[in-house]
Design a protein around this nucleic acid. Structure first.
Lengths: 336, 336
DNA sequence: CTGTTAGCGCGTTCAT
DNA sequence: ATGAACGCGCTAACAG
């Protein structure tokens, strides 16, 4: 491994000069600089990121801590972040927290310990997460998708209330009245807000909320499966279900198929999160599509501006989802 | 940020002693050690990974360079790697190469530059990738899913030939004879081997291979879509298609749906890679299921053994896929 | 403009 | 058994 000292010796200059050439800092005689660059090429020298980070206390890397790598929502979002990062010469490392708070904490520690210059976090739960080290080290951090209460970081969010409301509204307009929901943990902003939107739509239309119809679970496939089974087994089944994320929707659909419940004739379904294969499901799935790529890109832009020195109160970017209407929520046949 | 010097001062010892206590290296008076540990707890001291890595030339981190973060196959595999890594106290960072060789190279450089102690790579293409720096630095590397010719690294693979052969065989047994394939780049081992399995099955049964029926594309959804459109528009359509990965299968199904081609009545479909929602598609998709989690776990084990000092020629672990038979490949109705 | 010097936070000799 | 001193590779401060 060739070091800056090797380069300096070969070029007959000091390491300081080499450093200045590499970083375009300070003034260097163009002739000398040219010679140094020649040697660098010749030796294939590449600065050690480690030593550099140790010295400058900043590494040109962002850590993106996501709560579930298997969720396509996050992987799409990551693409948005990466594109902006690469354009600005940052490397991105992904950390998979598996919806586990302690893993989030340990990855945050990792990122700070490696002096990474930016942090993107999709929080798992709103409590129980201590971000004070991030504040102490003054490392820019942006939250995506979810927020953590009690901190004033920049955040990029989706209008979950509105998205959920639109979905349920669409069901009501289609003639459905016994509408259930399978929601995520209310300790997450996404879980809480989507539930809120569900309730709001029902209230606006003067439909009572049946307690049995509000099923709270994890955001995992298994939860969706189990809660849908519960709903199917009710004496008075719902005639439609709004499911608050993609993985739970898969579980819910599996339960319906297994029990031979016809969709949408017996129970209509709307999911949150559109996926490339939503239209290939039986029946094609109506879903609230989130602007995943843009979510990531906006996040990266906020992060960049913080790294570039912007200080000021936390900013919130809220993007709107879109309802993709397909057959799983087809209006009921009714005399009009 | 508290450093080892702070701890040493507070405990009234030298930094060398603190270092010895932390790393269990050398002999330290138990009483002293206890005192040092007390101070460490009190101050909440955590060693700087950066300084440590710079000094030891090894970081307790693995880099996993995957070729497409949006492919569920890879994200499932990652879980297998992570579980083993965490148990052995390694952190895992993910690098998304987007099927782009130059990104692979730059991430490899990043990993070496940060002195990471292990590397997992899912190569994009078999040529054009220079792994000599990895050999020079003697950093353990394991290949998963695909191989790069000309190197002798450990690798964990799936028996692609057999998987593809099983799939096509199943179609033949079902009475299909005009069987096409949509394959991936033959420069990848996965692309090449799955194509081989396809051809082998046909040959064994004495079925001629029609040149038009062998469609080679990228492993992306778009490629699957376009090639399926081509097949649909042929005067003499195939009656079955074997699609060589999950994303292309989605594209292929979309093309079929758009063109209102009945599956499997007009064209039967088998995909490679099973997904949690394969059974929810219309019709439920027959697919070659890969043991994704095990693939990751095996990879991690090989890596660990290398890190722990195993030297010796490259080892190959080959896992078998399983054909999940569903309706998209239903046998043709025939008089028997 | 260029070089010398110091030190980021550690682990590791080499004395004692 | 313990501490002093050094250096990993780099950038920043200070001279000249």
């Amino acid at each position: 491994m060739t070091t800056i000292t090797d380069v300096a010796r070969a070029a007959g200059v000091s390491t300081a000069t080499v450093s200045r050439v590499i970083n375009n800092t300070g003034k260097v005689n163009e002739l000398l600089a040219e010679r140094v660059r020649g040697v660098i090429d010749e030796l294939g020298y590449q600065p050690s990121r480690l030593a550099r980070s140790l010295r400058t206390r900043r590494s040109r890397t962002w850590a993106v801590i996501i709560s579930d790598i298997r969720n396509p929502f996050f992987t799409d979002m990551i693409r948005g972040i990466e594109d902006v990062a690469y354009k600005n010469n940052y490397a991105v490392v992904l950390c998979n927290a598996e919806e586990d708070d302690s893993k989030v904490a340990s990855y945050i520690h990792l990122a700070l310990s490696e002096h990474m210059s930016g942090l993107v976090v999709t929080p798992t739960y709103t409590h129980r997460i201590d971000l004070s080290p991030v504040l102490e080290e003054e490392v820019p951090l942006v939250m995506v998708d979810r927020k953590v209460e009690g901190y004033d970081f920049d955040s990029v969010l989706v209008d979950n209330v509105w998205g959920a409301e639109e979905a349920v509204e669409h069901l009501i307009e289609g003639g459905y009245r016994r509408i259930a929901t399978i929601g995520g943990p209310v300790e997450t902003t996404t879980g809480y807000e989507r539930l809120l939107g569900y309730k709001k739509a029902l209230q606006v239309h003067g439909i009572d909320i049946e307690e049995q119809f509000v099923r709270i679970s994890t955001f995992r496939e298994k939860g969706g499966y189990e809660e849908m089974r519960f709903l199917i087994n009710l004496e008075q089944r719902p005639d439609a279900v709004f499911v608050a994320n993609n993985l739970m929707t898969i579980g819910a659909l599996r339960a319906l198929h297994e029990a031979n419940v016809a969709v949408p004739d017996e129970i209509a379904i709307i999911g949150f999160d559109d996926m490339s294969w939503s239209s290939l499901l039986r029946p094609p799935l109506t879903a609230v599509a989130q602007p995943t790529y843009e979510l990531g890109a906006e996040t990266a832009k906020l992060l960049l501006s913080r790294i570039d020195g912007y200080t000021g109160p936390g900013r919130q970017v809220v993007l709107s989802p879109t309802l993709m209407v397909r057959e799983s929520s087809k209006p009921k046949l009714k005399s009009r």
